[in-house]
Design a protein around this nucleic acid. Structure first.
Lengths: 344, 344
DNA sequence: TTGTATGCGTTATCAG
DNA sequence: CTGATAACGCATACAA
C-alpha cells in the first residue's frame, strides 16, 4: 500500500482530481452528493493529503508562526496559550516552532515563511541583533515579543512588545534599598551575557548609584559554564559559593524566580533564615515565587497581556491597519514574605 | 522581488537547475569552481530553498519527529534535550511538534509522516487509546514514551517506554505507611481521569489495602474544573479546601511535585508545620522538590535514561535491528525533609 | 561534468 | 457543476 494520493481517490470515485480537491477544501461549486461520496471514499481509504504538496500550490493559506527561542521557559508557555486561543478565534492556523539556542531564528523564519506560506511571525524570546539586510528577507509582518533589542528605541522595521528590564530591575533593587539594605548580592547570567542578564544588572547598578551606594563587584555573581543560567540549581550553587566565601550581605537579588528559589534553599541549608538574616527577591512572577516558603518578593511580568498585545499587533500589521510600534509593558512589584526592613 | 527560486539562481549563473541543486546538496559530481560560483550567487541573492518542494521530491530524508502532548510539562523538556543530542549525533534531523490537548496525536503523526517523509516517530506524553486500524496507518516505526497504555501488557504494534505509575505510587504511599501514617490524603487529577491520575490513585489504594487501612473517600481530592491539573495552584486550592473542611489527616500524597508545593504552602498558610504536623510527598522528581523548604520527598522518574532508551529503541526499529518491546523503568524514592515518622 | 526533461501531490485555471 | 491540464519548486534519471 504505497501511500494513497488524490489520484487514487479520484479513480476510485470515478471523478477528476479537481473534484476531489474541491470536496476537501469546501469549495462552493460542487454537488453535495458527489461531495459526500468523495468524503466517504476518503474516510474509507484513509486518505490524508500531503501538506508539502499543498503548501507548494496554495496561495490563500492563513497561517502565522510563533518561533520560540530556547526550550524551557515556563513564561512562554503561558504566552503561547493565549496566542493559541486568539489565533484560533481569528481562524488562523498556528505553526509553533522551537528554535535551538544555537540556531539563527531569522534563518528559520525565512525558511518557514516559504515552506508554509506564512502571513505573519511572532518571535518569542532571545536576543535580537540581526542586520537590516537579513531582516529585509522576511517579507511578511513580524513582532518581537519579550526580546531584548539591539537599539535603545527599537527600529522601524519591526514591532516589539517587552518590559523594560533595566527599569523593573532597578525598581526591585530600589525596593531593597528602601528597606535599608546596602550590601546587596546579585546572582545572574553568564559574564558575557549581552541580553536580559546584562540589562537586569544595569538596573541593579543604577539603583545603587541613585542611592549613592558603591558597587561591590564581589557581590555580583555570574553563572559558571557548567550550570544552566536562570535555573534553580544555578541559584543554589552561586549562593552556596557566596556564603562559603563569607562575603557579608543582607539581601540578594536573583535575576529569575527559579534562581531565587535555589538561593533561598542555599541560605536555609547554611542555617540562615529568610527574611530575618537575609532578604531575597526574584524576577518574573512565576507561580513558584508565590508558593515558596517563604513566598518570594518579585517583579511580575504581565505575560498574558503581553501575549495578547503581541498577537493583536501582528494581526493589525497583516491587515495593514497599523504601523509597527514598540510597546513597553509595566512590571508589577509583588510583595512576598522574603524581605525584611532592617532599619526598624 | 517575488521569491527567488532555483531557476533564478540557475539563470543568473548561466547554468542548469540541476547544477544548482547539486551544488547545494553536496553532490560529488560537480566542478569545484562552478560550485563556488553558484554558492556565491545563492548568498548574494538570499536564495533559500523551499522545504515543501524539497520534501515532495526527496526520498532519502533522515528525519524523525517527536510529538509532545500538552505544552507545559517540564519533565518533557529534559527528555527532549537528551533526544536532541542523540539524534544530532546520529545525523538525523529532528522535527519537534507540539500537539494540543484536544488534537489527536495519531492524526498529526500520519500527516507529518507524509509531509516530512519521516523515518520514525516518538510520542511523548498523553493517553494512548487508538484503534489498531488507525495505528496501522502509521507506516514507520514509533515509540510511545511516558504514555499510559490502554492494555496491561502493551501491544505488539508499538514499542513503549514508561514507569509503572501504579507501582511507584504504591511505593511512596507505602513509605508513608511505614512512617506510621494512616490518615493519608491524596490530591490528584480530575475525577474522570483515565490516565496517570487514575493509575497513581490505584497505587494509593493498593498500598492502603496491603496495610489493611480502610480507604476514606473524603481524603481523596479531585481537581475542580476551573483549575489546571497538576499545577501548584490546584495543589494549593485543594489542600486549602481540605483543611477548611477540618478533615483530619497526618500525611498528604500529591500526584505531582508541583501540587506538592502548592499543598505545602496551603498547610503553612493555615499555620501548620511540615513535617511536624503534616507529612507531604510528591511525585516526579522535579528540581522544585529538592529546593523547596522543606525539601519534598518524592519519586524521581529517571527521565534522562528513559529519553535515551526511547530514541535508541526507535533507531533500532528504523534499522530493523530489533522488535518492538515494552520497557518499564524503575522510579527512585528520594527522601526529603517533608516526612516525619509519627510512631517515634 | 553538465543540461534537459520528468514527476513528486496538490490546487488553480480554464474550457466544457 | 465537472474534468483536463498547467503550474508550484525542487531533485534526479538520463542524455549530452
Amino acid at each position: 500500500m504505497g501511500n494513497v494520493t488524490i489520484k487514487d481517490i479520484a479513480r476510485i470515485c470515478g471523478v477528476g482530481v479537481s473534484t476531489v480537491s474541491r470536496a476537501m477544501n469546501n469549495h462552493p461549486d460542487i454537488n453535495q452528493e458527489t461531495k459526500d461520496m468523495i468524503m466517504q471514499a476518503i474516510e474509507q481509504n484513509n486518505y490524508v493529503p500531503n501538506n508539502s504538496a499543498r503548501n507548494l500550490k496554495r496561495t490563500d493559506a492563513k497561517a502565522i508562526a510563533v518561533l520560540v527561542k530556547g526550550i524551557s521557559n515556563p513564561l512562554f508557555n503561558r504566552m503561547i496559550k493565549v496566542i493559541e486561543q486568539i489565533t484560533q478565534k481569528e481562524k488562523y492556523e498556528l505553526v509553533l516552532q522551537h528554535v535551538d539556542d544555537n540556531q539563527d531564528e531569522v534563518t528559520v523564519a525565512i525558511e518557514l515563511e516559504k515552506e508554509k506560506r506564512l502571513r505573519g511571525i511572532v518571535f518569542l524570546g532571545g536576543y535580537f541583533s540581526h542586520s537590516e539586510e537579513k531582516l529585509k528577507q522576511i517579507s511578511i509582518p513580524f513582532v518581537l515579543s519579550t526580546i531584548k533589542l539591539e537599539e535603545e528605541d527599537g527600529r522601524q522595521e519591526y514591532a516589539s512588545i517587552s518590559v523594560d528590564d533595566i527599569k523593573e530591575s532597578e525598581r526591585i533593587v530600589e525596593y531593597l534599598l528602601q528597606n535599608g539594605h546596602r550590601k546587596i548580592a546579585v546572582i545572574g547570567s553568564r559574564k558575557d551575557d549581552e541580553s536580559i542578564g546584562w540589562l537586569r544588572q544595569q538596573g541593579y547598578r543604577r539603583a545603587l548609584e541613585r542611592y549613592h551606594v558603591a558597587v561591590d563587584e564581589e557581590l555580583i555573581c555570574y553563572v559558571p559554564g557548567n550550570l544552566t543560567p536562570y535555573s534553580m540549581e544555578a541559584g543554589y550553587e552561586m549562593t552556596d559559593q557566596l556564603l562559603k566565601k563569607g562575603k557579608a550581605f543582607t539581601a540578594l537579588f536573583a535575576m529569575s524566580d527559579s534562581m531565587a528559589v535555589g538561593a533561598c534553599k542555599a541560605i536555609l541549608d547554611h542555617g540562615g533564615s529568610i527574611p530575618d538574616q537575609y532578604s531575597v527577591v526574584g524576577f518574573d512572577g512565576m507561580d513558584v515565587a508565590q508558593y515558596y516558603n517563604p513566598s518570594i518578593t518579585t517583579i511580575r511580568q504581565p505575560v498574558e497581556e503581553m501575549a495578547e498585545a503581541t498577537i493583536r499587533m501582528l494581526l493589525e500589521l497583516i491587515r495593514k491597519k497599523n504601523k509597527s510600534r514598540h510597546l513597553v509593558f509595566e512590571g508589577q512589584l509583588i510583595e512576598g514574605q522574603s524581605v525584611r526592613n532592617i532599619t526598624e
